[in-house]
Design a protein around this nucleic acid. Structure first.
Length: 176
DNA sequence: ACCCCGATCGTA
DNA sequence: ACGATCGGGGTT
């Protein structure tokens, strides 16, 4: 497999493009490898579902920073959610990683952001990491064919009108 | 200091 | 349909 890690430029692109293009990419975290299956875009202070909609706060500071960094937060007091920061410095946006088909060390579909972080052991300790430069935490370009569907984002009450959720559908099987 | 509630998930 | 569980952020 030809592993080419994604560059900072990739994450600096418009968030909708990054969210869609992250589908089918190879995700690497410590000893885990998998294919990104489902993402959502959260874009700027005008997106009411985005954490940055209420402005710059200690928690969302990372979203205002350099693209290609991780943003991990605690939700419902018990689950963590993993995002990658996108776009230019000063513009708060990111992509939520909702589902990954793990292929190593075993084949498991982690469908849901909370389940995903729990299984991989991702917590708030992993926020603010620069995934462009880390050997054990990055996303890489691989070749794969699939179709994409677009839907409203899950679990939000505002911004439901936007079709900012992206799901990959493999003709064969992502677990292979 | 206090209160509300959330980018979820498993159980019923 | 609902409860678990707690930090963030707004309000007093």
């Amino acid at each position: 497999m030809n592993i080419t890690p994604l560059t900072r430029k990739f994450f600096e692109q418009p968030t909708l493009k990054v969210a869609e293009d992250l589908l089918g990419k190879l995700f690497v975290f410590n000893n885990f490898k998998g294919i990104i299956i489902e993402t959502e875009a959260y874009i700027g202070i005008d997106d009411p579902a985005c954490h940055a909609a209420r402005g710059r706060t200690p928690r969302t500071e990372i979203m205002f920073g350099n693209a290609g960094h991780s943003y991990v937060y605690l939700i419902y007091g018990m689950y963590h959610c993993l995002n990658f920061v996108t776009e230019a410095v000063g513009f708060p946006a990111g992509v939520l990683i909702r589902s990954i088909q793990i292929i190593e060390p075993e084949s498991i579909l982690l469908d849901g952001p909370g389940k995903l972080c729990k299984h991989l052991g991702i917590t708030r300790q992993h926020t603010g990491l620069d995934i462009i430069n880390l050997p054990n935490f990055f996303v890489a370009d691989i070749e794969r064919k699939f179709e994409i569907s677009t839907t409203p984002r899950i679990g939000i009450k505002q911004g439901v009108d936007k079709l900012w959720r992206f799901v990959a559908h493999d003709r064969v099987n992502f677990s292979k």
